[in-house]
């Protein structure tokens, strides 16, 4: 190995001089970056002038967690019995209430495939709310597929309107950015907000389904349909996303339809052989507890669905639904 020729101009003084210059250069660059730094972060172009919105708490103050489990083949009868065992729909919906029902209309598939909220169940809930004196009942969702096709082909449009409800289809202008308190994933994200304006009660109605990414799609996952934008990126962290959906939405009531359960090939299914007749209707105020019961319908344990434990750890409900002393009944 040969030594490199020594630079005659380099001595201790020269070294310090050059080191100081380099240090000053780096300091200047860092200072310039700091000056250019935008502490608010990037903002969506359409949302530049918009204020972040938050959903209000729709749960009934002072009402302890309640849950009802009804066994029966007829979902219309089952939901009636379930609500009656919790004190009747009047315990949740009063005169003059303005009710929003969030259905699962994700796919433009027929009701018999169990991939969406069943129209008969929806129609009955709309009817009961109006019977209890609700001033209005609105039905909405931001489906995966084309909204017009979804609401029509699932039978949800016809069921909602014939029962006296009003349907709101999503469109760009109905969304506002939201960052729920404590959320790490849902930040400055478009939320289907307009249908909530003026509403004071919220009911979620969802079927029990297998889900390729999360293991299950039930009442908590149902709130995914309130998000807009390229929400599919959330599938990379689906369990935390579902937890944050439950942080974002505090419903008055959730209804989990386990009359049939999509056991495999969810969330779309496609074949009647993906379904199992499980004859259960679960109604409750604690969405974590309701979904924990639903896990059993899918043949899964709470531990196999991490979003349930994450939601419980976040104080959003309990997976030990028996502590709520659920009322168990059967339709005749």
């Amino acid at each position: 190995m040969t030594d490199l020729p020594r630079d005659p101009s380099m001595n201790r003084r020269e070294f310090f001089r050059r080191a100081t210059k380099a240090g000053l250069s780096i300091t200047a660059a860092a200072s310039l970056s700091l000056w250019l730094y935008d502490p608010r972060g990037p903002v969506a172009p359409a949302e530049t002038d918009e204020v972040l919105v938050l959903l209000p708490d729709f749960s009934i103050p002072g009402l302890s967690s309640r849950m009802s489990i009804v066994t029966g083949e007829d979902r219309v009868k089952s939901v009636g019995v379930a609500l009656k065992s919790l004190g009747g729909i009047e315990a949740f919906i009063g005169k003059g209430d303005r009710v929003l029902i969030k259905v699962n209309a994700a796919f433009a598939l027929p009701a018999l495939l169990g991939a969406t909220t069943h129209p008969q169940l929806l129609g009955e809930v709309v009817r009961l709310c109006l019977q209890a004196g609700a001033a209005s009942v609105t039905v909405t969702d931001n489906p995966i597929n084309d909204p017009e096709s979804c609401f029509t082909l699932t039978g949800i449009r016809q069921a909602a309107e014939s029962a006296g409800g009003k349907l709101i289809l999503p469109r760009e202008s109905l969304f506002r950015p939201t960052t729920p308190s404590g959320a790490r994933l849902i930040r400055n994200w478009p939320l289907l907000y307009a249908p909530f304006q003026g509403v004071n009660k919220l009911i979620g109605i969802a079927p029990v389904k297998d889900h390729h990414r999360s293991g299950a799609s039930m009442t908590m996952k149902n709130w995914y349909g309130l998000l807009g934008g390229r929400r599919n990126i959330f599938h990379q962290d689906i369990h935390n996303l579902i937890k944050e959906l439950a942080m974002m939405v505090k419903p008055t009531l959730v209804i989990l339809d386990g009359t049939t359960t999509m056991m495999t090939n969810g969330p779309t299914g496609g074949s009647l052989s993906d379904l199992k007749q499980t004859n259960m209707m679960i109604v409750g105020t604690d969405q974590v507890a309701v979904d924990a019961f639903g896990a059993g319908l899918l043949g899964k344990t709470v531990a196999q669905l991490p979003f349930l434990l994450k939601a419980q750890e976040a104080g959003l409900g309990t997976t030990d639904y028996e502590t709520l002393h659920p009322v168990r009944t059967a339709t005749g």
């Binding site: 995966i144 390729h212 990414r213 799609s217 599938h235 969330p267 779309t268």
Partner: peptide, 10 residues
């Protein structure tokens, strides 16, 4: 995923 949502990954 706009068509089949969570099954797209499969």
């Amino acid at each position: 995923s706009d068509k089949i949502n969570g099954k797209a990954e499969l």
